[in-house]
Amino acid sequence: MSVDRRITPATDRIALDSLRGILERPQYTAGTPMRVAVPLADLMNMPNGRRDRQVNFGADVTVIDESDDWCFVQTALDGYCGWLLAAALTAERPAITHRVIAPATHVYPAADLKQHQLHALSIGARLAVTGTEGGFAALATGGFVPVQHIHDTPQTDPVLVAESLLGTPYLWGGNSDWGIDCSGLVQAALTACAMPCPGDSDLQRDCFPEVSEIQRGDLLFWPGHVAMAISADVMIHATAWKMAVIREPIKDAIARIDAAGDGPFLGIRRPCHPR
């Protein structure tokens, strides 16, 4: 059986119970629910390996296997699988109430903007808010964040979310305001609006229906690359060409990418809004 390791919750020695009778492994497990407790964690293809993606603070995962200081997990957000440092995880999972909607925010030790920040969080971080104090939200995990940077309901326009990340540095496998790649930008924009979205561009292309006419919010694909249409003529994408999130005319991008030998243009897909 051919499997895609990125979305198959199994290592060579153990698989999630859902794969019994589908994928043969020496052991099976129900997995252990855990949560990311650091601002940002790299999801690796193997312990001490290469970063495939990143997971934000508050992300829920299922731990399937362990090796020394590493845990093999499947993320709840998109089913992506990989290795995280065990130290990045906690068994404490208070009820999530809010998400960070600003590109980034700071966590303070008190409801006081003059206090030295504890750490920063990026767009998409999931929070358990227990109350408010002086314009700050108190977190069950400790600390306070400005209420202007969080919300308890999904956003409504993925393009506006993507545009809030204009200028963000390009980072292969990145999923945050500190660095993001093409598929990370698309996923951040769609999931902020409660629209399910896989983590990599090929998975995204396979996930959504093809259309023939470009409209705002559509996804534009090339081999190994994805962009989001701002309009029928302009797109936004995280590109190694400029090492940043930029706007670019769609016709110019198609011609430029073809000239660089990175084409052809693979077409248009339309993300599905939640019902």
Rank of each mutant, 00 (worst) to 15 (best):
L40T: 00
A41Y: 02
A41L: 07
D42V: 08
L43H: 02
L43R: 03
M46V: 13
R50Y: 08
R50V: 15
R51T: 15
D52N: 13
D52Q: 13
D52L: 15
D52Y: 04
R53L: 09
R53K: 12
Q54H: 06
Q54D: 04
N56A: 13
N56F: 00
F57L: 11
F57Q: 03
G58Q: 01
G58V: 00
D60R: 06
V61Q: 02
T62F: 02
V63R: 09
V63L: 13
I64M: 07
S67A: 14
C71K: 10
F72R: 06
F72V: 09
Q74W: 03
Y80D: 11
W83V: 11
A87L: 09
A88C: 11
T90Y: 02
T90M: 05
A91P: 12
P94V: 00
A95F: 02
A95D: 05
H98T: 09
A102N: 09
A102D: 07
P103Y: 02
T105E: 04
Y108I: 08
A110Y: 00
A111V: 05
A111C: 08
L113I: 15
H116T: 14
Q117G: 06
L118M: 11
H119C: 12
H119T: 09
A120P: 00
A120W: 00
A120H: 02
I123P: 00
A125N: 08
R126D: 00
A128M: 02
A128L: 03
V129T: 04
G135I: 10
G135R: 11
A137Y: 04
L139N: 05
G142V: 03
F144D: 03
V145T: 02
V147C: 12
H149C: 14
H151Y: 01
Q155W: 01
T156L: 13
D157W: 07
D157G: 12
V161E: 07
L166W: 05
L166Q: 10
T168K: 01
Y170C: 11
L171N: 09
W172D: 07
N175S: 11
D177S: 15
D177W: 05
